[in-house]
Design a protein around this nucleic acid. Structure first.
Length: 556
RNA sequence: UGCCGGAUGGUGUAAUGGUAGCACCGCAGACUCUGGAUCUGCUUGUCUAGGUUCGAAUCCUAGUCCGGCAACCA
């Protein structure tokens, strides 16, 4: 076990693999796989699976294959394949040379199918889907055997060959396993192995008109690749007997072993490729990589560091309990990482002008302020100072309550990295709105006793930047507990995006796309990787900073 | 009411017959050139009922509740 993972709490899958390795199973080898279907983008739920699949292999000195589970050409495409690869690399995992497609094995799967037929373990069935529904039976009652179940093997072999040759229309015939029509497990009631489907496959084009089903293809793929531990989510639990039937009946040795764990659910979001696709197509979000999306590309654009996502996946654990994880845990992991790594800058979102009346001629024209107080190695940057500065409007109150520590008439605060400011005069317009403050400045050497430090920006040289303030996509915590007759889209948060203009210190102009910042006292932001232009970055709010004062206000 | 699986504070997760712990959230305080971070402390939990045992979250029995399964989807 590697250093990095040694002190992590264990879970049942790690324990199982450790026991297998200790027992010398598979020669002590650990081979896992992550098998996405390329019909959508990867989301945070997949991140959990990726961390488990790749993480277990890494931890036990094995390998993890990346395999496109592309046995249904209907919704699959190369665009998805490429983005899946990019997102996994971004998350920090590498499959080396072990990249595969289910389509790689199509020919081999046909050979296996013929073998099954000749073993009298499969047959070509001519029942329509309607008829089959009737033959299959229901959970509480056994099904009936197909009239085609006992046709001679060679007849099935011939029909199967003609199926492949495109002699029959879509859906008219199929190849079924011959297992047990009375099984209490529906998946064992002569499941379909191959269906006829005239649909171009993004990889094989129109080379095939028959496609294997997941239940048949997956175990064969695992077995061919030498996968030892086939880890998947709970909904495949009832498929496991079929998985085992396939690899055992075909005589693979050794056989891969399937183990299931609970998928990840997060509060305030949906985690289904179908729904995410609908949001994209319906225009409720700007695309798969909209920063509000729980997709990996959305989180990247939002500014979530991959290390934070990995830390989160470690933190949620691995069990068979279908839980709903509080998104606050994810946000905690993001803050934790960004606090250590993000470059500090100052930006004022709702400016209030302050004129310093006593600024001496020899006052510093700029201050060197640390880029990251948590990391001295990050150095400092120069922030120009001058007679007129901008402060946050909410950092001033004309009549402050007792628990407000910031600027007020006659009161002093520290200006971040730039000495002290005392408010001497409040200027209002005709409507009584405060439009300007006057004050006096004292250098930091004077050690004025203050209870707060506020951020500021020099009026001259301040850069106006576009900032997108993102909030949760949905208004309700648990979308699965929503009324039956409602649609998840009814619960979209109308305030999930607000675009504002902020005034930032001059150095912000040099922000590189994708770079992470903390705007002090406000939150973490990243320069948008798509919309930023040289010298004119656009920012996405990653997550706010905690704000104890605002929280206390909310309680009042 | 068939099969498979699951239930530990508000949330997530440990403890595998021997002091129910950790993290997040929340609350309180200390500290602080970010009302951030950090540090300290606190509240809250073994689904129910029986049983085995010196001792049960853990083992047994019977219930309850929740999730999944009846695509030629994955």
């Amino acid at each position: 076990m590697s250093e990095e993972t040694k002190d992590r709490p264990s879970h049942f899958i790690r324990d199982m693999i450790a026991a297998d390795v200790a027992a010398g199973k598979n020669g002590g080898q650990v081979v896992t796989r992550f098998p996405p279907e390329p019909n959508g983008y990867l989301h945070i739920g997949h991140a959990k699976a990726i961390c488990i699949d790749f993480g277990m292999a890494q931890e036990f000195g094995g390998r993890c294959h990346l395999r496109m589970d592309d046995t249904n050409p209907a919704k699959e495409s190369m665009e998805y394949v490429e983005n899946i690869q990019r997102d996994i690399r971004w998350l920090g995992f590498d499959w080396g040379d072990h990249f595969y497609y289910s389509a790689d094995y199509f020919e081999r799967m046909v050979e296996c199918a013929v073998k099954l037929i000749r073993m009298d373990m499969a047959y070509v069935c001519e029942l329509t889907q309607e008829q089959w529904k009737d033959y299959r039976g229901i959970p509480t009652q056994p099904g009936r055997e197909s009239p085609f179940r006992n046709r001679p093997a060679e007849e099935s072999v011939a029909l199967f060959a003609r199926m492949r040759a495109g002699v029959f229309p879509d859906g008219s015939l199929c190849l079924r396993a011959k297992i047990d029509m009375a099984s209490p497990n529906l998946h064992l009631r002569d499941p379909v192995l191959y269906r006829i489907l005239r649909m171009p496959h993004y990889l094989t084009g129109d080379a095939w008109v028959i496609y294997p089903t997941y239940d048949y293809a997956h175990p064969i793929e695992d077995a061919i690749e030498g996968v030892t531990h086939s880890l998947c989510t709970l909904e495949f639990e009832v498929h496991r007997p079929l998985y085992d039937w396939v690899v055992q009946t075909l005589g693979f040795d050794p056989v891969p072993r399937q183990t299931e764990f609970a998928r990840l659910n997060l509060t305030y979001t949906v985690m289904s490729k179908r729904k995410l696709l609908e949001l994209v197509q319906g225009g409720q979000v700007a695309g798969w990589d909209d920063p509000r999306m729980p997709t990996l590309c959305g989180m990247r654009r939002r500014g979530y560091p991959p290390a934070a996502v990995r830390a989160f996946c470690d933190a949620v654990g691995v069990t068979k309990y279908e839980s709903l994880t509080d998104v606050a845990l994810l946000e905690h992991c993001v803050r934790d990482e960004l606090n250590r790594t993000a470059t500090r800058r100052m930006a004022v979102f709702d400016p209030l002008k302050v004129v310093i009346d006593n600024l001496p001629a020899d006052a510093p024209a700029a201050f060197g302020i640390p880029n990251n107080p948590e990391d001295p190695a990050a150095g400092t940057r120069e922030v120009p100072f001058g007679r007129t500065i901008l402060i946050e409007r909410e950092d001033f109150m004309e009549e402050p309550p007792k628990d407000f520590f910031r600027l007020a008439p006659g009161r002093a605060v520290r200006l971040r990295g730039a000495g002290f400011l005392t408010c001497t005069e409040v200027v209002k317009d005709a409507s009584g709105r405060v439009v300007e403050l006057h004050g006096t400045w004292q250098p930091m050497t004077e050690k004025v006793k203050v209870k707060a430090t506020i951020h500021w920006v020099p009026e001259a040289g301040a850069r106006q930047v576009e900032v997108r303030l993102y909030d949760r996509l949905f208004r309700v915590e648990d979308l699965s507990a929503t009324p039956e007759e409602s649609d998840y889209r009814d619960f979209l948060n109308p305030d999930s995006l607000k675009t504002v203009t902020a005034f930032a210190e001059p150095s912000i102009a040099g922000a590189q796309p994708g770079a992470a910042f903390q705007f002090e006292r406000i939150g973490y932001f990243c320069a948008d990787e798509k919309d930023s232009k040289p010298g004119a970055p656009v920012f996405n709010r990653t997550v706010t900073l905690k704000d104890a004062y605002a929280k206390a206000q909310g309680r009042r």
